[in-house]
Write a protein that binds this DNA or RNA. Structure first.
Lengths: 191, 191
DNA sequence: GACTTGCGATACAGATCTGTCTACAATAAC
DNA sequence: GTTATTGTAGACAGATCTGTATCGCAAGTC
């Protein structure tokens, strides 16, 4: 690295750099040597902060979970106070994500693809993120006064996952906008 | 292998065996040695049929594309002659897929995750499958008489991708049934 | 019966992977 | 000044990966 960083900052820098690599090349496709080259650090440094590659992956997933949800919540909270509106605004947030250069898909879905053993730590952490996402949708649906917030949330979640997958394959498909318009129609038909 | 197979049958057997491995462990996670052990063949045999691992992956993707779409079309065609009904029946087909033991997610999405370079043959072949899927939805939507079949198809596609991703993380979520009920409401509101 | 073809088994080459080790520099604490 | 800590640089071990080469066997063809 270049200039003075605290241990915490350096650790974050390693995670961020590794995350970009995981996004682009997947977990198995991202070698330790490549990761440290991208981060500009020595191998010793990486292994001082993370005992194994799996520990690095877990840290990356956990950090991305917190970051993604915080950014999403900030985005929608800044634009509306209505829970129902917020449910729909999450799709605008997704749309913004897709247009970012460096978007290659959902690293949590990728994690469950590459580590399909449902007892593995990596699968569990990735699934945890998806669970938190649904919980957030449940909260908004309940606040919006829908009769069956869990069901609403599960369906909003299907639309979210769907637009991510479509955007991953076909970047310029307005997948999030499509998902939003479906969500709108769907919510309007819930009474 | 055990008994007499034609070259074509053996080739198919290798592809099927490799596909199961790719589904469970991903492409980078499936080593050649593991694949041949699972297939019960010699390494020489594999490399006689496929020049490289990439060629094997491409063959697996192409075969799965044809197989999946044929099975889906057969499934819905056998159950209804109404294009509109068929659009909805695709979700029942997905539900059936998810309940199969050995379902680990969509190998086409996994392919685009692990090989994100949009110029790579693997990405292109995987994207081709998704394109064929949308084409099929367009055809059904047009036959059903919807005014904007392409838009309908794109949205049905979002629901498809969504329920696959949800099912991959949480197998017992009735994701396909949720997607179907959204699709139903959505189609009813298209006039 | 000789020859060809396809497959199994396995040794092997060469690359790459994860993770450890040693050596050295810079900085802060005492 | 000494010592502990944290970093860089990179050699290295050992495993694993892709792909090739060699050998033997079985079956079909001439």
């Amino acid at each position: 690295m270049d200039t003075s960083l605290t241990q915490e900052e350096l650790r974050d820098h390693i995670i961020d750099s590794a995350t970009r690599s995981f996004e682009q090349y997947g977990y198995h496709g991202s070698g330790i040597n490549y990761i440290i080259a991208q981060a500009g650090i020595a191998k010793t440094t990486l292994y001082r902060h993370f005992k194994t590659k799996e520990a690095l992956i877990l840290a990356a997933i956990q950090k991305e979970d917190v970051k993604f949800r915080r950014e999403m919540i900030d985005y929608v909270s800044a634009r509306s106070e209505s829970p129902r509106e917020q449910l729909l605004l999450t799709f605008d947030f997704m749309d913004m994500c897709f247009k970012h250069e460096g978007f290659y898909g959902c690293i949590f879905i990728s994690a469950t693809s590459e580590f399909s053993d449902k007892n593995s730590m990596i699968f569990i952490e990735a699934a945890k993120h998806k669970h938190y996402m649904v919980q957030y949708f449940v909260k908004l649906a309940a606040e919006a006064g829908f009769a069956h917030p869990k069901e609403i949330a599960a369906k909003i979640n299907v639309l979210h996952e769907g637009c991510v997958a479509v955007a991953q394959v076909n970047t310029y498909d307005n997948a999030a906008i499509h998902a939003k318009s479906i969500a709108k129609i769907f919510l309007e038909n819930q009474g």
